[in-house]
């Protein structure tokens, strides 16, 4: 498959020039093409924010829902039609802030979906307020004395919850980003990909250069199947490790649903037997 299949041609893109979101969009297209998943089986689900506009710029099915609420519809979609490849993506504010409760419980539920988070450590669309991942001391028009809340550590939380796939990558390395996204989509179960992404307009601290200085690649000897070492790895915040941090083979949400125990077909093709319902009426 070629990348251009997902191109929407000449369209108006709402991102600032130089924004890391462009690199993510290109990486996503390449990976989808590489994996050769039929277009009609790919569904993107997003919330609201600059990051959450990504599906609008792709030729795929999408459900662009509410701020913070991408994971619940993604779970609903996957459970009704497990044949679909479902990718939920949004910004750090959306996924870790407004949608924090869904983030936690979606990991526990473990639907076979990919969760891409564009982590620019700031609220882009609403023009530069602190996000859950903003660094201590980060100044904004609201956090006038700098952020005093401890930064949210999505990877540590995911590992603590025994997430089935936890990874981090960086827009500054498209090859790495593609490799990680591919592994995440191929992984059976919930897969978190936190993508460090510079926001050129509202985050003058965590720039492309800053990220380069404050990240490193986990080496080939690193074993992502060991939860304790994964947890230590995830706790590293001075220099963010890049790569697959943790992975396991937990059963997925949908494969454990009663409706698929005997019948593997999507739920939508089935109908209830009205005669059985009539009998139910008189049962007591």
């Amino acid at each position: 498959m070629t990348k251009s299949l997902f191109d929407r041609g000449k369209i108006d893109i709402a991102w600032c020039p130089g924004c890391g979101n462009y690199a993510i969009l290109e990486a996503v297209k390449s990976v989808l093409a590489d994996l050769a998943i039929p277009q009609k089986h790919i569904v993107f689900v997003s919330g609201i924010g600059q990051a959450a506009k990504l599906p609008q710029y792709l030729k795929v099915h999408y459900f662009n829902g509410l701020h913070g609420r991408a994971l619940p519809p993604a779970t609903g979609i996957k459970s009704v039609n497990p044949k679909l490849t479902v990718i939920a993506e949004s910004g750090d504010g959306d996924m870790y802030g407004e949608g924090g409760n869904h983030f936690i419980h979606c990991i526990r539920r473990n639907p076979d979906i990919t969760n891409i988070v564009h982590n620019n450590m700031v609220y882009g669309l609403t023009k530069g307020q602190a996000s859950p991942t903003s660094s201590l001391g980060f100044h904004t028009p609201i956090q006038v004395n700098g952020v005093i809340l401890e930064p949210f550590n999505p990877l540590a939380i995911a590992v603590a919850l025994d997430a089935s796939f936890v990874a981090r990558t960086f827009t500054g390395d498209p090859t790495h980003m593609q490799k990680i996204l591919k592994l995440a989509i191929q992984h059976k179960g919930y897969a978190l990909v936190d993508i460090l992404q510079p926001c050129v307009s509202f985050n003058k601290i965590n720039t492309l250069h800053w990220f380069k200085e404050h990240t490193y690649y986990v080496d080939s000897s690193y074993n992502p199947r060991n939860r304790s070492s994964a947890f230590s790895k995830a706790l590293e915040m001075d220099h963010f490790p890049l790569g697959v941090i943790f992975q396991n083979n937990r059963p997925t949400f949908e494969e454990q649903l009663l409706v698929y125990k005997k019948n593997k077909n999507s739920l939508i093709t089935r109908q209830h037997d009205i005669k059985k319902l009539q009998e139910l009426l008189l049962e007591n």
């Binding site: 459900f63 609903g76 009704v80 649903l257």
Partner: peptide
């Protein structure tokens, strides 16, 4: 499929996803 969601916000958004997928 019957699912106890983590909160009511998740509940209705899940139901809307399911509806979008055809349930």
């Amino acid at each position: 499929i019957t699912e106890q969601a983590e909160d009511e916000i998740a509940a209705i958004n899940m139901a809307l996803g399911a509806s979008y997928a055809g349930a």
